[in-house]
Design a protein around this nucleic acid. Structure first.
Lengths: 213, 213
DNA sequence: CGGGATCCCTTAGGATACTG
DNA sequence: CAGTATCCTAAGGGATCCCG
């Protein structure tokens, strides 16, 4: 038996053998948003050493969780269908961990992909269905996350465009999701900065995305 | 920043900082079934070194996931309310990993607690509600798991007693849960051994517990 | 005997530099 | 840009020992 196996015939141990190594589920988290190149993954996980990223990508391939796709000139990684079924795991982990986040610290970053997953787990289709279709953008230094809400459907992609409301990406948005910072207060204190569109739309955003305490 | 932090303000990274270390979620898995003593945890995870178990218990306490309760003469560990909310995470992981289990290998063991979690994630309240209330027992060398199904409710405890059907604990039960082994065939091949009660009740068991492929 | 602590060794992970 | 190669540290693993 491989040294790092747990020696049990159990779904939980098997899952942890496949995706329980350090960094593995964070690679999955980012790939849940869309296919990514090696450099994009590295950019979304700035603290991962490149040898570890390379090792994890190989292991996740061997485990049948991701696929390496050589395209013209570039290589992209994407989740296999089996890998995509980790979405409930990642969302549940994110919802649980979100409540232990506390105050953002100086060195803690927010990446577009991590924000996308947080929004996906906070999305309330019921609330969204009662609101007009809206396009939001969260803008980061590294790029922009386009958030389209229509009826009970949510579409998250990278990119920007004409939106109803554009806000600056960052920890402030997370505070909004938990509800411990009301939209008005978030604007007042500068926790959330509106870059484009009517500030009043932030309340609609906050009704659409909410993580239960 | 601590070396083992991921440096992101994100629920997934925070969760992995709290319970992402090796063995941690397996301790949580077993505590989801009930409070356990140090020695019981060690017995349910035979390959964990005792220094690692001790270290994890301290870390999980510090993280607010478990509590150390000194009782007369003995100490037990139990999940805090926040720790109990990891149940969806553990069940989702287990359901996902279950499908990658493959054939049981000689050195892979099945513990009562891991079986309890598998049953909890496989439980189908809808199917159970249409069947008569039934008490099952899964018997292991280390002890017995008592499984009571009544209406749409499931109760899992350690212990034995008068049951309608008692089966030998082991990998065979898992094969039944996925449906790749029909009850009749499981009995025929000896994959599942009935120790007590009518063999026909195994079909009811298989209808009550099923992991979707 | 339960509930750990200690020791030593192995290996994974981290930092940095380098290459096709 | 997409990874390797190298070196070093720290975590994990295994056995043993300790203490109330």
């Amino acid at each position: 038996m491989a040294a790092r196996e747990y020696g049990q015939y159990c779904g939980v141990t098997r899952a942890l053998e496949l995706v329980g190594e350090r960094w593995a589920l964070l690679i999955v988290r980012d790939l849940l948003v869309g296919p990514r190149r090696y450099g994009e993954l590295a950019a979304g996980l700035p603290r991962i050493p490149s040898n570890i990223l390379a090792a994890r990508l190989k292991e996740l391939q061997a485990a049948g969780v991701i696929r390496r796709i050589p395209r013209l000139r570039v290589v992209v990684y994407e989740l296999t269908p089996y890998g995509r079924e980790l979405e409930p795991v990642v969302l549940a982990l994110g919802a649980w961990g979100h409540r232990a986040l506390g105050e953002p610290r100086e060195e803690q970053i927010v990446t577009p992909d991590s924000m996308a997953i947080a929004l996906r787990s906070a999305f309330r289709p019921g609330a969204a269905a009662e609101l007009p279709g809206t396009a939001y953008a969260a803008r980061f230094d590294e790029g922009s996350l386009l958030i389209r809400v229509d009826g009970g459907a949510l579409a998250l992609t990278r990119g920007d465009g004409p939106v109803d409301l554009a806000i600056a990406g960052g920890p402030g948005i997370h505070r909004l999701l938990t509800g411990d910072l009301a939209p008005a207060l978030a604007l007042e204190t500068g926790a959330v900065e509106v870059l484009e569109g009517r500030e009043a739309l932030l309340a609609r955003f906050a009704r659409t995305f909410r993580l239960a305490a």
